[in-house]
Design a protein around this nucleic acid. Structure first.
Lengths: 223, 223
DNA sequence: GCAAGTGTTAACGATCTCTTAACCGAATCT
DNA sequence: AGATTCGGTTAAGAGATCGTTAACACTTGC
């Protein structure tokens, strides 16, 4: 889930970024409206956090510009608690409003709340391939109807591979997409998790049929 | 799903009515507290949208009067963002709060959110799963026919989990949807309430069968 | 005002999970 | 064949998460 934060104060930018990353979001930052617009187009974030007061072009302008193309949810930050700001923001189509200085936990909570309201939650599809079934809603992975009892990482990895069955992923790619772009983890860690997954879904450990190694490249799951 | 909107400004009344109708609600409108009370009794709406400032009798008074008879969810509209209003409203038993002028989409979203939180999607539905029965009308939860003697929060949490049985919810989501979006409570608070619920419905405390922990994610109830 | 009940938080320990490093064998390259 | 790279496996320690309890503030009803 990608969030773009636009604010001209570096310290705010950094603390917000850290907090949101810690909450599991992929965070992009920009220090001006122009930069924000550019990154918005490139990164296609799922939610925006905009400072109302920006040096050249105001956050409200940026909001207007973005609203022409997109219905992405927007949360405003403002130093003043003035009514005009609030009014202008909500009129333009902001989804929420936070007055600086704000509590970081509150910001994170609002980001999540807005996402939930806007119905952007992860599409939570059930994945079935052969005798394996993975339901992210109940967070249950079963093989032949029996629970696989996966740990969080195992579940995430299994879900990702099953969702893109057949496709090969390098260890680095898996780290990026399953562990998250923030994680600084040795690539060999993936091997260990693959091993644990094989223990659950492969009948013959020495000859994997479904979690297949592609030597020199990575791993893939065959449904 | 019926919504009653009470506001003395006709323009607001009309735009809100149009929007909510478009969203699939059956809308009733009133321009004064007295009229609102009358229509409330007749139409029995599932949710109220009340302006705080009304000519003769204030929206807060109307809210109080209605609260004596009913637990219908109420969303307040106010021109001022003052804290006192907010506090007064939430004290009386409002479910949410919107500052005028507001974004119509936001209003619709909040109406839906409040309905979801209040569990009104299927108004006052009795939930039964296995030997557990939860009746929100009488506010009674029984297991094997014996009352579980739940506190208010315990009841709300139990009801929510039972209503969405099988589905996993993070602590944050539970806080948002059971405690409400305005509450800033430590996530670990959920643990304690889960523990208390387990005391009532689990035979073996060390090995929960129904209120299951999904490590790294949250909790779910298995019916 | 007092007592009982309720909700929240902090702390600690127990448990589970993740990561790393090391070693070994298998595959690949020269 | 020998060297080298790559992947499999294991175990141990670090780290995160969860369960549980107790203390406290707060509310409610008597």
């Amino acid at each position: 889930m990608k969030v773009l934060v636009v604010d001209d104060e570096q310290t705010i930018l950094e603390t917000v970024e850290t907090k949101l990353r810690r909450e599991g979001f992929t965070v992009f930052t920009a220090e001006s409206a122009e930069e924000g617009m550019r990154i918005f187009r490139q990164a296609k974030p799922d939610l925006l956090v905009l400072d109302v007061m920006l040096p050249s072009r105001s956050g409200l302008d940026l909001c207007k510009a973005i609203r022409r193309d997109s219905k992405v949810p927007i949360i405003f930050l403002t130093a003043r608690a003035s009514e005009e700001d609030r009014i202008a923001g909500l009129d333009i189509g902001a989804d929420d409003y936070i007055v600086k200085p704000f509590n970081l936990g509150e910001l994170a909570a609002r980001v999540k709340a807005v996402m939930r309201r806007s119905g952007i939650e992860n599409p939570q599809e059930v994945i079935e391939c052969g005798n394996i079934r993975i339901d992210p809603k109940t967070h249950e992975a079963t093989i032949d109807g029996r629970s696989m009892n996966l740990s969080p990482k195992e579940f995430a990895l299994m879900y990702f591979l099953a969702k893109h069955q057949g496709q090969v992923f390098s260890r680095d790619t898996l780290l990026d997409r399953v562990w998250g772009p923030e994680s600084f983890v040795s690539a060999r860690t993936v091997d260990v998790h693959i091993r644990w997954l094989r223990e659950r879904i492969e009948s013959s450990a020495s000859n994997p049929q479904r979690l297949v190694t592609v030597r020199g490249v990575g791993y893939k799951f065959i449904g």
